[in-house]
Structures are given as structure tokens and as C-alpha cells.
Design a protein around this nucleic acid. Structure first.
Lengths: 191, 191
DNA sequence: GTCTATAAGCAGATAGAC
DNA sequence: GTCTATCTGCTTATAGAC
């Protein structure tokens, strides 16, 4: 039984499992069964053990998030299109509301001390990226940050409700309103 | 060393620990140290072990939530006062943004199967309680539910951001806007 | 109602064969 | 690169003294 796993697939599955079970809830046995690889084999890929696995999952999520969500915001397209690009990326990144966010999952229990600083920075970075688009639309920096924060809050909150109620309508409704809410009452001098 | 603990205090501390560490992250040793009671002593108070402890913490949270948040909504005061009563209760219940919500914490890992149904019902019940107030203000039921859902999303999302960034300004800002957002553009026939 | 002592099992982690 | 076997420590849980 040694069908030589694709490292890329392993990390993807690790991310799925940590998102669903949390850091403390994901045991090596859970992970082993979920991936179809013996417990010991993980120490070849991740010499540092479980924390290394979580690190790899976190880095994968960061890269995916940058590509799907942050990159569209930084483009040169018109502001509304950039925001809509973020929304499409969010739908993909959170699997239509079925996937949890590591900002939530890795900020409690044993993962908190491992990722707290990076999570805090990720939130700040995401918020600034949205705010910059709104400044381009003509909003004052302070108002832009406030609206960006509201958007992030709505995403995170709707993911909690999606998980709590086992449905995705809420997440999809929030996504569909994000751009409208961010741009409402935009200053006349909008680009 | 047997200063006979107050059961009420034990459950309160259990709730604090589960909120912070999560179900899987809270070990009996963590709990024992956090409360100052030997591991074995818990089996006198909670014969079913850890799941019984989580159950007691969940029930305590449910009761606290009903008293602090739901009760004001059901009163006979004017709608705006009832909503403001909920906001005050939320500030207390979530300790000004420092305390996590079990809707979040107990919906992943080993606690998910234990509490999923009750958590789902709690969200629905809370939403209906807010929506009823908005219907009293003159909103159509559908619009009332949508606004209620947005309010809950904002609370949950701001708690995530509060925990992720170790600050409470966001939570307090969201709280301060809840009533305004819920009541904005209320129909003329408002009571 | 709390404690000490201990059981039984599972956690994360390692050694070494293939 | 994966496996089997094993180790150590920690986890939940129990028995029984005080």
C-alpha cells in the first residue's frame, strides 16, 4: 500500500481537515485516515510534526487567498470590477460557504499561539486592500477602512452562520450584497 | 486541599475555558488547573465526563443568553428600547468582545456532533426574536428576518475579528450601530 | 465533596525495514 | 516515500481513602 501521494494533494487535504476539525480536533489518526497515508509517513513530509502540517495548511490558505481574493483588489480594473473580482474569489476560496476560515479556526486552542500574529496581520492586510479600492472611488480613508471592516465582518459572520445552520444561502446573500454595500453613496468624484 | 467549590462557579469557569480553548483544546488538566479542583473531582459533578462538562457550560450559556439578550427583546417596551436592551445584554454576554461565542466554538471538531442541532435552533430562535421586534416597527416579515440575520452576522463577525486582532473596538463599534442599522428607513407606520 | 493512585487508551513522535 | 512496530507522555476515566 504505497501509492505515493502527491504533496500538493496532501496539503490540500490537510487544509480541508483543519478547517473542519480545528487544530486540536484534528488528530494524526483523523488526518491519516482522511488522506490515506500512514501516520509515520507524515514525518517525512513534515519533520516538525503536527504544527508543521498546520503551518503548511496555513501557508497554502494564505497563498490561495492572496491569489483569489487580494490579487483582484490590486488590479488596474475599475473599482467596482476589482471588488466584484474579490467577491468571485471569496466564493471560490470559501467553497460557496461550505469551508471555514482559518482566521476563525486557528485563533483558538493550541493553534492560537502558533498563528496569532499572522492572522492579525492577514485581517489588517485584507482590510487595507479593500479600503484602497474605496479610496480610489473617492471615500475618505477613515470611511473606507470602516466600510472595509464591515465587509470582512459580514463575510466572517456569514461563515459562522453557514456552519452553525448547515446552509449556504446566508453566505451567498451576503456575498451578493458586498459590492453594493461597499459602494453605496459613493462620492460624486468616483473614478 | 478541599475548599469545596461552588458548583455555580465551576460551571462559570468551565464556560470561560471552553470559550477560550474550544472543546477539543480544553483538556481535563487545563480545566483542573483553571478551576483549582482535582481531575477526579469533576466526575462527582459531571458523571458523564468531559461531554457532560461541555453540556453544563452550554446550558449555562443558553440560560445567560436568554436572560441577557432574548428577554429584553420579548418585553413590552417600545421597539427601539427592546433592541437597545438586547445590545446592552450582548455587551455583557460577550464581555465587551473579549468572550467567544459557543455558536462558533462548539460548531467544529468533537463538539459539533454534540451540539449542532441546538446551535442551529439557537440561531433561528435569536433571529426570530429580533425579527418580531422589527415587524412591530412595521417591516414586512421577510425584510425583518433579513435585517435580523444581518445583525446576528455582524455580531458573530465582529467577535471573530475581535479575537483575531486582540482588540474590542470593532465589536463595540458594531454594537453601537446595531439598532441604527436595524431601524433605518423604518416604515412610517412605526409604532 | 475532594483527594491520591491508577488503569486503559490514544496522542504525537521515532526507528528502521522495504 | 511508505510502511510496521514501538515509545513516551498525556488523555479520559475509575476506584477507593479521607
Amino acid at each position: 500500500m504505497a501509492p505515493r501521494q502527491n504533496p500538493r494533494r496532501i496539503i490540500g487535504r490537510l487544509l480541508d481537515i483543519f478547517r473542519c476539525e480545528g487544530y486540536d480536533g484534528a488528530t494524526l489518526t483523523t488526518i491519516s485516515n482522511g488522506i490515506g497515508l500512514g501516520r509515520a509517513s507524515f514525518y517525512h513530509h513534515f519533520p516538525g510534526g503536527k504544527s508543521d502540517m498546520a503551518r503548511a495548511a496555513f501557508d497554502r490558505a494564505s497563498r490561495d487567498f492572496t491569489r483569489a481574493v487580494l490579487a483582484p483588489l490590486a488590479g488596474t480594473a475599475p473599482p467596482a470590477e476589482r471588488l466584484q473580482g474579490m467577491v468571485s474569489g471569496l466564493d471560490t476560496f470559501y467553497d460557496g460557504g461550505r469551508g471555514a476560515c482559518l482566521i476563525d479556526v486557528f485563533s483558538m486552542g493550541g493553534a492560537r499561539d502558533l498563528f496569532h500574529e499572522e492572522i492579525s496581520e492577514a485581517v489588517a492586510y485584507w482590510m487595507e486592500a479593500i479600503a484602497r479600492v474605496l479610496v480610489d472611488v473617492g471615500f475618505q480613508p477613515e470611511e473606507a477602512r470602516r466600510r472595509a471592516e464591515d465587509a470582512i465582518i459580514a463575510i466572517q459572520g456569514s461563515l459562522i452562520i453557514a456552519r452553525a445552520t448547515s446552509q449556504t444561502e446566508t453566505f451567498r446573500r451576503v456575498l451578493s450584497q458586498i459590492v453594493i454595500n461597499l459602494m453605496s453613496d459613493a462620492p460624486a468624484k468616483a473614478a
